[in-house]
Design a protein around this nucleic acid. Structure first.
Length: 872
RNA sequence: GCGGACGUGGCGGAAUUGGUAUACGCGCUGGCUUUAGGUGCCAGUACCUCACGGUGUGGGAGUUCGAGUCUCCCCGUCCGCACCA
């Protein structure tokens, strides 16, 4: 074998071998134990970034690990190929999004292959392909039939200059990103999916997902936001016209503290009041400025204006002023809220600002009410009792809510109600590069679904967006069609679907990608659910919730038999790196980490950095997520070319556990490379004796006494590595591999038989442990040293329990919890013997001599703690 | 604003889940090898102290024989918020 580790050669050969043997094609064989390992598919943005490399390396390590444990592993890959960036690139380069997307896919596929991922490429799919998106359309039509899909008006960001709908991302500080014009909210008709129909089921099912991180489940539960409360109405009569202002509250017990109501700017009452109140009309118009993003709405200055209208308190009949509030959302509940400034912080601030009355109606133990000192204390449901509330005085939360709901119901003005924060999913996008919504608009028949036999509605692939609306609207060949119902000339819907639709079921399609007559088939049930799903924490809510919803819709349509798509979920951390910059005439210029030289003091502490181009200092700007704007990204391609894929994989897995953020470090990569080179050198040095042993059939482990301590350590490290593989903590797996190498490093394998056997056993274990992480490297050495043909099929190493047995154990001795000594005792020692040995230790006696031992704690295998006090 | 995380040497991180804090790697210091080296190898490296010993896991309190780990309060950083994917 080569004395030198040449990654390019090793990796080329290994990849060619896997390719020609079809090693990673997962057979549809339901008789074998399956493992479906899935990483979130990439958006084909152009080149792989380190976040992709990390995501797919984690998935690949798990796939190879499960395969070596004997499972039939499916690891597919595809492309989330519709989306906004392709339209932006089209505008910048005058290239159709389709062409740009396909070129990116071709390039990134080569990159993925160069990293040696164990992917079954025969199942590759792209969501922009008609074979895929036709099933989006087909299932959408089923949802229309079942009523899950429906049409209603929704609010979008509108750029009045470009006359186009903007994504939240395209709104910067309330203005359109290209025009700088203040963005307006505009209502348009859209299609919605009734995800709220599954709100209860999806919420309750979270308890049955033990393989999901608790924080993700908490986030989903909060997002669904099931709350128990009362929906009730304030009756009114204006100019002889009677009506009801409906609101929802979870704090019906505070209803007697209502001092005003607030409605959204789009609320009918606001519009009515504005008819003869120009000032209010101006205010309402102002409220309609700005983006629809909830984060923006929630952080704006809370402003309001009185409508001059008064409604009646449903229980007391007192008049209650109605205000318009810019913080009230029309899309949530009924677009109106009751305000109880005495017991709600936001209402309290609003009341102070506009000098509205504040009334205490809940007793707050230990707090006294006064206008100056009152802190709006959101009375604890367990403790607060009603005061100043007439008939409800003295009732606790539950009693008060019951009594008030009963009284409201008697007047037919309200009832208890369960409400969700979750809103139905609006899927219409006024964009070109997406899946067409299969609807035809006919003057006579209205909105007519496209019949199944006319699917797919093909998206023209040669449009070039120009930033002024959806280019499909200018494509007569797309728009003009005939009505499927009456045959008259009609127009196609030009809205496309949210790209979250595409990503809501791709995991199922991998299982039956070649089926051109049905969305799913039996093979989907054989592979599903996904055993391990891996992706960024940023998808914790939306993508995962939509996928859980879509799976249930498919289940209820008889397309899959599972309830949940993903049994286990791993949310990987971000890839971050140091930033470097200079401020130049008000502009901040960022330097790539590869283009600066870091300065350190004698202790290795960073003192500054110099730019390579001119040797002048740059500012060290802190650790940030790798991004184009901060120019702190590292190109995986360059690294693979310099060090090989295995080194990149080793570093990526070693630098941090999968869930934590991973900080980039050039010297850390060097460390990974050094490790592989040292291991290679060891294998080269041991080649002769190991190959000799492997040539003679089954190799028995060394039984000599001299081998015992080494074998004990080898198997202890193996045990730790197996434990950490089991919990997917790969950084400590690699740590164990490094320790194994350090341990084996001093062994002269060629000098006698027991050393050769220990070397053979240790190296065999090490190569298999490392194989999922550095697959090309281990594949190569496994063959070179004669262990066998394919390390993937070599079987997973197991701990030799007999080798772990120790004659003597070490224990530490504490006195009052402080470390005072170490003792060695026979492993068979009982509690008394251990305690006596601890008391006898010379250094321990220094600290116990003039004290009284009150208590002795013996933790087997770990420590002895002597609790002492002064003699008196 | 709401929701969810995180905080340990100069740095990334470890701590078998309440039991020796800092494993492994990087960096740094010193030495050896090499024609040379940005290669390789060896040793040292939390802080204070000559030492005995003491201190130390963002800050403050608490539970415990024992807390990085559990509880409460505070500070800081990061992620998501429905049209980025």
């Amino acid at each position: 074998m080569d004395e030198q580790y040449l990654p390019a050669t090793v990796e080329r050969e290994a990849q060619a071998s896997w390719e020609s043997n079809g090693t990673f094609q997962a057979p549809d064989d339901a008789s074998r134990e399956k493992f479906y390992c899935l990483s979130m598919f990439p958006y084909p943005s152009g080149r792989l970034h380190m976040g992709h490399v990390r995501n797919y390396t984690i998935g690949d390590v798990i796939s190879r690990f499960e395969r070596m444990r004997g499972k039939n592993v499916l690891q597919p890959m595809g492309w989330d190929a519709f989306g906004l960036p392709a339209e932006n690139a089209a505008m910048a380069n005058s290239v159709p999004p389709a062409q740009w997307t396909h070129e990116n896919i071709a390039y990134m596929k080569v990159q993925l292959q160069s990293l040696g991922f164990a992917i079954d490429w025969t199942r590759e799919l792209a969501t922009c392909h008609p074979d895929y998106y036709r099933w989006n359309q087909w299932l959408f039509l089923r949802m229309l039939e079942s009523g899950i899909a429906y049409k209603k008006s929704g609010v979008v960001n509108w750029d009045p200059v470009d006359q186009t709908v903007l994504a939240n991302e395209q709104v910067i500080d309330g203005r359109g990103w290209r025009t700088g014009a203040p963005v307006e909210k505009r209502e348009i008709p859209m299609y919605y999916l009734e995800i709220t129909r599954y709100a209860d089921e999806m919420l309750d099912a979270l308890d049955d997902l033990p393989g999901w991180p608790p924080q993700v489940k908490t986030m989903q539960a909060n997002w669904i936001g099931r709350s128990h409360g009362v929906r009730f109405a304030f009756p009114y009569e204006f100019d002889g016209e009677a009506g009801r202002l409906w609101v929802f509250t979870t704090r019906a017990d505070t209803i007697m503290g209502v001092t005003f109501c607030a409605v959204a700017a789009e609320h009918p009452l606001a519009e009515r009041a504005a008819r003869d109140n120009p000032e209010l009309a101006v205010f309402i118009e102002a409220c309609k400025q700005g983006s629809i993003a909830e984060a923006d709405i929630a952080t704006i200055d809370k402003k309001g204006m009185p409508t001059g209208l008064r409604v009646d308190h449903p229980l007391t009949g007192e008049p209650v002023e109605v205000w318009v509030g810019n913080y009230v959302l029309m899309s949530y509940g009924d677009g109106a809220v009751m305000a109880v400034p005495g017991h709600d912080e936001r209402d309290f601030e609003f009341a102070l600002k506009y000098d509205l009355p504040i009334r205490q109606v809940i007793d707050v133990p230990g707090e006294s009410f006064s206008d100056e000192a009152w802190q709006p204390w959101y009375a604890d449901k367990e403790r607060g009792r009603c005061v100043n509330s007439g008939a409800y005085d003295g009732l606790d939360y539950l009693e008060a809510v019951d009594a008030i709901a009963t009284d409201l119901a008697a007047k037919e003005l309200g009832e208890k109600r369960i409400q969700y924060r979750l809103r139905d999913w609006g899927i219409s996008r006024q964009r070109y590069w997406g899946c067409p919504i299969p609807i035809v608009h006919c003057d006579a028949c209205g909105d007519v679904p496209v019949p199944d036999d006319q699917l797919p509605v093909l998206l023209p692939d040669d449009c070039v967006p120009d930033g002024h609306g959806n280019p499909l609207n200018k494509r007569d060949d797309f728009i003009n069609t005939s009505c499927p119902a009456c045959g008259a000339p009609a127009r196609r819907e030009t809205d496309t679907m949210d790209t979250f639709v595409d990503s809501s079921w791709y995991y199922a399609r991998y299982c039956c990608r070649d089926n051109d007559t049905a969305m799913t088939d039996k093979r989907v049930d054989d592979w599903m659910p996904v055993d391990q799903y891996i992706g960024g924490i940023e998808h914790a809510i939306l993508h995962l919730l939509y996928s859980r919803f879509w799976t249930r819709v498919m289940r209820d349509s008889g397309l899959v038999s599972v309830d949940e798509p993903f049994t286990n979920l791993l949310t990987q951390g971000m890839v971050v790196a140091e930033t470097y910059y200079r401020d130049d005439a008000g502009r901040r210029i960022f330097f790539n980490p590869a283009d600066v030289d870091v300065q350190r003091d004698d202790k290795g502490k960073i003192t500054g950095a110099l730019a390579n181009e001119d040797g002048q200092p740059v500012t060290v700007g802190g650790i940030e997520k790798m991004s184009k704007s901060k120019n702190n990204g590292v190109d995986p391609q360059t690294l693979v070319e310099r060090y090989g894929a295995d080194t990149v994989r080793v570093f990526t897995m070693f630098a941090a556990p999968p869930e934590q953020s991973l900080e980039w470090s050039d010297s850390g990569v060097e460390g990974g490379y050094r490790f592989l080179k040292r291991l290679w050198a060891l294998a080269a040095a041991w080649q002769a004796p190991v190959v000799l042993l492997n040539g003679g059939g089954e190799v028995a482990p060394a039984t000599d006494d001299a081998a015992r301590p080494l074998r004990q350590e080898i198997h202890a490290l193996l045990q730790q590595a197996l434990h950490d593989y089991g919990r997917y903590q790969f950084n400590t797996v690699i740590s164990a591999c490094m320790k194994l190498l350090n341990l084996l490093g001093g062994l002269e394998a060629g000098t006698d038989d027991w050393r050769a056997r220990v070397a053979h056993e240790g190296l065999g274990i090490l190569l298999r442990l490392l194989a999922p992480v550095a697959p090309h490297f281990c594949h190569h050495l496994w063959r070179e040293l004669g262990y066998g043909e394919e390390i993937l099929d070599a079987g997973w190493p197991g701990v030799d329990e007999a080798a772990l047995v120790k004659d003597e154990i070490e224990l530490v001795v504490q006195v009052n919890g402080k470390l005072r000594g170490q003792i060695r005792v026979p492993a068979s020692s009982d509690r008394e013997a251990i305690e006596q040995a601890a008391r006898d230790d010379a250094n321990v006696q220094r600290f116990t001599a003039d004290k009284v031992v009150r208590k002795v704690i013996v933790v087997p295998g770990r420590l002895v703690n002597l609790v002492v006090t002064d003699a008196n």
